[in-house]
Nucleic acid binder design. Sequence first.
RNA 1: CGGGGUAUGGCGCAGUCUGGUAGCGCACCUGCUUUGGGAGCAGGGAGUCGGGGGUUCGAAUCCCUCUACCCCGACCA
Length: 568
Amino acid sequence: MRTSQFPLFTLKEVPADAEIVSHRLMLRAGLIRKLASGLYTWLPWGLRVLHKVERIVREEMNRAGAVELLMPAVQPAELWKESGRWDQYGPELLRFHDRHGREFCYGPTHEEVITDLARRELRSYRQLPINFYQIQTKFRDEVRPRFGVMRAREFVMKDAYSFHLDEDSLAETYQQMYETYARIFTRLGLEFRAVQADTGAIGGRASHEFHVLAESGEDAIAFSDASDYAANVELAEALPPSGPRPAPTQPMQLVDTPGVRSIEEVSRFLGVPVERCLKTLVVRGDEGLVALVLRGDHTLNEVKAAKLPGVTAPLEMADDEEIRARLGAGVGSIGPVGLDLPLYVDHAAGHVADFVCGANVDGKHYTGVNWGRDLPEPETVDLRNVVEGDPSPDGRGRLHIVRGIEVGHIFQLGTKYSAAMKASVLDEQGRAVTMTMGCYGIGVSRIVGAAIEQHHDERGIVWPEPIAPFQVAIAPINWRKSQRVRETAERLYMALEEAGMEVILDDRDVRPGVMFADLELVGIPHRITVGDRALDRGVVEYQARREGDAIDLPLDAVVGHLRARPQR
RNA sequence: CGGGGUAUGGCGCAGUCUGGUAGCGCACCUGCUUUGGGAGCAGGGAGUCGGGGGUUCGAAUCCCUCUACCCCGACCA
């Protein structure tokens, strides 16, 4: 390709609304343009990258024996009503009517459609297991789209759905998909981690997420420094503290704490460390309010809390009026002593002695409170998010917390959809058996953003070789005037193309600085500079995007040199 | 959903408080010069000042209203 035929749309200045580096660089490098909130056009250079990601995903899915199909993006409401998700899914599901007034949605995921297909087409256990996949555009009406293609409303996803006669078969395919995903992200040149995950809105049992590690990631993941334990912080279990609780040393006292509300204020006002201040959160439950007690330095894990019996899922915090009406005191003065609410106490909070807590009277707190003496011994549960340094739940090592971008997610669904939609096959005995399902997603367009998040420098994108829009750029200096430069560049271009490389020849008549800046911004891994100065010495210059200095190469050595480069 | 902010040539911004002929940088077009790190000179084109309504002799500027986009929050005890 030539830049005259395959134009760059690079930007010197960044549109003001781009927040994170990958979004800025995708705009500046001319990979995408925004149409509306969460909706992006893929420009030619960006589309090349997207297609490369797709190709690797497709190759590895095919290698794993999955079969590709393509389902409609628009789906009839009936199927969603059958699965029960028409009512469950909420406003993220974009719904509309056709001219006959029939209800449809734009598919955010395809369990219903594939299950409908499977129940029609699959009759016998002999057809199982089977794993269907597609690469297709999804729409999720996100509350708050942001970060460019990382959280867009319309996005490209690879979704796969497997069907099985039994759990063992599902477990086998699940494991195979786990390995396939690891291979895909390795081939893409990304630093990633597979972690145990919550099943969320899709439902089902076992589940792993694949995260590209990056500071800007929206998820926190916890992993052990001494084992292969890794989990989304949403899920990571906080173990109860070991050893006995310290014995009480203080009497319980009611103290005035006028205007003191937050844990930090309480701690400062009373001179008690935050770890010895307990906070009491009030949430809505199936029958009125429920109180959750945590250590002041810990944060509530909403996923864990929502799973507690009697607590609403998803979790809803009670508002100030509700609390005041029920307890006679405001948020900020609530505590477990004498509290007339169902109470859940976090393991760590139940292990604190001589603690401070709200007194259920405005402007008053208790100090020196002790479980089992001033209030009943609590039964403790896991309520909090793990923090850096917590013991690993598998008993080996300590947890570290890093941030990640979720790019893949695999689930063992079980029969959630197949049962609701009556998808069964006949087994060896001729009995109808509800099929067991798995599903496996990869955020194809998100990967492009995630890759940039992980691979860039101050000059722009530094693509991993396998997904670079082109492998090699030829930068001819003084293209118009120097016939020698032009002829050499053309000859090189032909030779590299013939060698099977993807080459972009920058035949714009622009000054070298402009050319170099653009080629670095768009992140081409290898650059050959052709200029009279080097040609006088009988060479051209080779510059790797991720390395410092250029080296001289004789013309006939260029193809060999590029071939010898390790794929990264 | 709640809170905050922004909207002025393609992009980035000033001008708005204090009403009086719409400006700057980059980009773009033409010509000449230039060609190893985002060139120089000269000339040029391009804006319903987000939409609608109002106040006024006069509105980018003041008032009302709508829309779009962005940010923050949805752990506060």
